[in-house]
Each structure stands twice: as structure tokens, then as C-alpha cells.
Design a protein around this nucleic acid. Structure first.
Lengths: 179, 179
DNA sequence: ACTTATTAGTTGCGAATGTGACTATTTACG
DNA sequence: CGTAAATAGTCACATTCGCAACTAATAAGT
């Protein structure tokens, strides 16, 4: 399952039309950084989400809302989205679900009727208090595989990669056409 | 847009029912490793995918199939999925699209009629040759922000995190219920 | 050999997601 | 003030995704 497949199996030099370069390919997917980031992220996310999915039947967006509200207390949906990197519709739907399950409460902001102020209910805080130690433990078990001597460097690198990715994404969003 | 929101805005100590712990929360999302991995991965992926989406109207799964076939020449769908970490249905659909666009060809394997042998067409190889340098350049512009002195450590850490994530995911997949 | 179990790949279906349009409200500005 | 631009949030729509069921083909067990 985890074995990366031996390429030399069926790719015998049978001289197919446009098939060449096995070993010296210019781009090896398994070394390609964006791909590798996606793989590690989806594996980690998948592993963690199974925990709270099984416990409370919630998904990643709901989890993020829960954690954000647990961290800040009271927030608007917009702020939740900004803090958790989620599209406003995702936040909207996650909040709707959590509200229906009585984990999150919504109260009006008299100063601005467009937004609602979100916060955890007692029950929501209970779920939060139950999940957080599990999540913290998970993150610990994940991070502990990094050699302590490498941690600071990894931290710096991850931070820089995040910044640069945001730049590149913003840049790509501009170029509507061609180069 | 990128400003992470100042938490002290609306979370004034107004003493709401179940709302507490602003600053000393046990789990800060922005420091939580699984979350951070997801953020950087989706930003990077989003930025890169815009390139080939605009150029050839393909998405991430198609891109991965293309790269994998470009790298190995001839492969079965199963092998493509194993090498690119994609579910077999994703591979199936991506291949169907690429085949329809004449970028990938499928030929029967007389030794095992269940599988088809996939390879790039001439056109597909052309697209591949066009995209790969762009992708390589992208990865370079991404990775160059990492301090050269930190690169080896980052590489080690990423590798270990990937392995451990896979372990944790496999582990989580077993526990059907409770602890 | 023949019956059963595996495997490669596809498809149907429901859930999740992003985009864009839309509503309600607030702010800017003339 | 009063009209136009901006903002928070929801909703409808189309797309994407993963799971489960299914088909076709091969391998294993007896």
C-alpha cells in the first residue's frame, strides 16, 4: 500500500510513441514540494479529523470554528473565517450546523446588524474541552518525530513557505490570461 | 485580506456565558501543526494549479496523472494512483478526461485484461514538456525562501512528518469506535 | 475443472465545496 | 440628508469528491 511501485515493471523499453525518460525525468512528483506539502497535509488532516468525526460527527470546517471560538470567545463569522483561513460560505455552513447542534450560539450585534456575534454554548465548550487535549496530544505525537535539533529550522522554513505561498497565490490570482 | 484579525477587537471581557480564555487558550489554531500544514499546502496548490488550469483547463488530479506518466512512460491506473497518492476513482476520472482531450492514450494489456496501460500521447507529451519547466520554476521560487542552512533540516522533518502522518492515519482508520 | 476470493477499473449517489448572485445593513461622499 | 459604494452573511447552482456497489477479469483453493 505504501510501496511506491517499481517503475521498471511495465515500462520496459517497448518503444511506445511518446513515452520516454523514465529515470531522469525533469520533474519527479515525489520530490515536488507542492505535492509533498499536499500529501503530508491531507494525511495529517485525515488522521485527526477521524477523531472528532467519530466523536461528534463534525468535519474540518466545524472543528476550526469550534477551536477559533474556544480560543477567542466571541467573534463574527468574518473574523472566524479570517483566522481559520476559510471561505465565508464554509464558515456560514459550519456555523449553521454547529448552531443546529447547539454547540454555537449566535447573538445580534446592536452596533452592526449585518454581523452576528458567535460564541460557544455550554455544550460547545464541553465538546471543546473534550477535544482540545486530544488534538494537542495528536499534534504532539506528530511533531515529536522531528529531530529536536531540526525543529527551529523546520519552524522557520514552514513560516517562510506559508508566506511565499500566499504571495504566489495572490500573484497567480491577478494574471487573468497568459504569462 | 492577509491580516490575521486583531483578536482584542470584539472579544472584550464582556463575561458571556461559556466564553473564556482568550490569550492563554490551550490550542492556538495558528500554531497547530495539522492546520498549518493544510494552510501552506492549499495555498501552494492553489497558486500552482492556477497556472495549468489557465493554460490547459486541467485540475490537480489531471496534472498528477500527466506528471506521473511523463515520469514513468507507461503505467496502469493503479500504479498511477499509488505513485500520486490518489484514490482510484480520482485517477479513473482524471484519465477519462485526459483521454478525451487526447493527452493520454490507453492500450490493452494482453497479459491482464483488467488493467489498461496508460501513456502520454504526442500531444500529451507536448503539454507535459510545456508545463514541467513552469512547475519546476514554481517549486524553485517556492523553496528558495528557505534559508539554505535550514534546507536539510526541513527536508528531514518533512519526510518524517509524512511518515508519521501516514502511520497516524492508518491507526485512526482502525479504531472504529471509542478510544 | 470449477467454485470462490481478489483485483482493476467504472459508475451511481450523497455529501462537501467554490462561485456568483442576492439581501440586508452600514459607511462614504457629494 | 440622500444616494452610491462597501460589507456580512446566506442561498442557489454547478462541480468535485469519496464511498459503496458493480462489472469484468484473474488468481487461489479444493
Amino acid at each position: 500500500m505504501a510501496t511506491p511501485v517499481s517503475p521498471s515493471d511495465s515500462s520496459a523499453p517497448k518503444a511506445a510513441p511518446a513515452n520516454a525518460a523514465p529515470a531522469d525525468a525533469a520533474l519527479k512528483l515525489e520530490e515536488f514540494l507542492p505535492y509533498r506539502l499536499n500529501v503530508v497535509a491531507s494525511l495529517a488532516s485525515q488522521a485527526l479529523s477521524k477523531v472528532y468525526a467519530k466523536r461528534y460527527g463534525i468535519g474540518v470546517p466545524e472543528w476550526r470554528v469550534l477551536v477559533t471560538l474556544g480560543q477567542y470567545g466571541v467573534m463574527t463569522g468574518k473574523a472566524v473565517g479570517a483566522h481559520s483561513h476559510m471561505h465565508k460560505t464554509k464558515v456560514s455552513r459550519a456555523v449553521a450546523l454547529l448552531e443546529q447542534r447547539q454547540l454555537v450560539a449566535r447573538r445580534a450585534n446592536d452596533a452592526d446588524m449585518r454581523e452576528s456575534l458567535l460564541s460557544l454554548t455550554e455544550t460547545g465548550r464541553g465538546v471543546y474541552d473534550d477535544l482540545v487535549p486530544i488534538a494537542v496530544d495528536f499534534a504532539h505525537r506528530l511533531g515529536e518525530v522531528i529531530d529536536p535539533a531540526d525543529r527551529a529550522a523546520f519552524e522557520r522554513a514552514l513560516r517562510k513557505l506559508t508566506d511565499r505561498s500566499a504571495e504566489l497565490a495572490a500573484e497567480a490570482a491577478l494574471h487573468r490570461n497568459d504569462t
